[in-house]
Simulated assay, not measured.
Amino acid sequence: MYVAVKGGEAAIANAHRLLADRRRGDRSLPSITIEQIVAQLGLAVDRVMAEASLYDRAIAALAIRQSRGDMIEAIFILRAYRTTLPRFGYSVPVETSRMLVERRVSATYKDLPGGQLLGPTFDYTHRLLDPSLLRDEQVEEPLQRDGEQEPVMRVSDILAGEGLVEGDGELPAGHVPGDLTREPLEFPMARDLRLQALARGDEGFLLSLAYSTQRGYGNNHPFVGEVRMGEVEVELDLPELGFAVSLGRIQVTECQMITQFKGSVKSPPQFTRGYGLVFGQNERKAMSMSLVDRALRTDEFEEDVVSPAQDEEFVISHSDNVQATGFVEHLKLPHYVDFQAELDLMRRMRREHDERSREEPGDDTLEAAQ
């Protein structure tokens, strides 16, 4: 039916060849390596891992290289690869309280047990181009960590000691954590599934929603209780052994936003929390996730849904960048038959409009007759 698509297979093959040519770029320059992407474009690698739900720096770097730096395309590629991997089981919950912290800041307490750790951050840099980076110079020797890192207590534990913040909460007896990579979305969602969706949601979309909650489109007046980045241990429970074994460490970023709550019949006045946890160093995403998480907890605190960030179905249904990309970009596919139908309808409507205009005299004609 789509006559214009005839011969498309050869055209698609040539498009792929052209894409590979553009990806390689100038042959007089050395090809960028996976190791270079991992080592020097680490934040891009972290974002791709987080939104693809797969912690593998080398494979994420490969996806970035294959996609020519298109983050969403790289996420799409990595998710597709993830579906081919065998599944051996589920890890036990990660204990972020035992995180070996590399960066940790709080906007609520100046003096913290363990101190404020600035770590690697753009927060205090001047947003000016650095011409020295144009020259491929050897930099100083890499910095070494001073001694062994020790876990530091969380800010929420300080407030919990005074009973001023809601507890971590307990899952209902017999509750089986959901897995949105294997089960279709159903609303309303349990919070564990909702957090899964937010963890792999598009950073830009969640950032915009988080911003909206601070501009009055929500009921949040948050403080950054704590943002921390570091390594946590991942363990797998092996029934045949009767205990969990360590699989290694991964880098994550965790954020807890605290928000005032006036209390209700069921709960006293206290601070409530929004939570964000993502792969790698990804503070903007973790903070946005925690703001949106708190905004979506309207049912728990008997709050009215008055803004998009508080509407669970709206947020979760539109936060996935792979799904959103597919729906938007499918418009590039042939829609010739549909458009011809619309075109015929438009022409018929125009003819009918012109005929009515000729049959019904306008205001000028009426005035002349009078």
Rank of each mutant, 00 (worst) to 15 (best):
I32A: 15
I32W: 07
T33N: 08
T33A: 06
I34P: 08
I34C: 07
E35Y: 06
E35D: 15
Q36S: 14
Q36C: 11
Q40R: 14
Q40S: 07
Q40V: 05
L41W: 06
G42L: 02
G42E: 09
G42M: 08
L43R: 14
V45F: 00
D46C: 01
D46Y: 00
D46S: 03
D46A: 06
R47F: 01
R47A: 04
R47L: 11
V48R: 03
A50Y: 01
E51S: 15
E51G: 06
S53R: 15
S53T: 07
L54G: 12
L54M: 11
Y55Q: 10
Y55H: 13
D56R: 15
D56E: 11
D56K: 13
R57P: 08
A58S: 12
A60K: 01
A60E: 04
A61W: 04
Q66V: 15
S67F: 06
I72N: 09
A74F: 01
A74G: 04
A74S: 00
I75G: 01
I75Q: 08
F76Y: 02
L78P: 02
A80V: 04
Y81V: 10
R82Q: 11
R82C: 07
R82W: 07
T83A: 14
T84E: 02
T84F: 00
L85E: 03
P86G: 06
P86C: 09
R87G: 09
R87N: 09
F88G: 12
S91W: 00
S91A: 13
S91Y: 08
T96P: 02
T96H: 07
S97D: 12
M99E: 00
V101N: 05
E102Q: 14
E102N: 09
E102D: 11
R103Y: 08
R103W: 04
R104A: 11
R104S: 11
V105S: 02
S106Y: 04
K110W: 15
K110G: 15
D111H: 12
L112Y: 07
P113N: 10
L117P: 02
L118H: 09
G119N: 01
T121R: 10
T125I: 05
L129K: 05
D130T: 01
D130V: 01
D130K: 03
P131V: 08
P131G: 06
S132R: 14
L134Y: 01
R135F: 11
R135L: 12
D136K: 13
D136T: 09
E137R: 14
E137Y: 07
E137N: 12
Q138Y: 04
Q138I: 11
Q138R: 14
Q138W: 06
Q138S: 10
V139T: 13
E141D: 04
P142E: 01
L143W: 03
R145D: 05
Q149R: 15
Q149V: 09
Q149S: 14
P151W: 12
P151L: 13
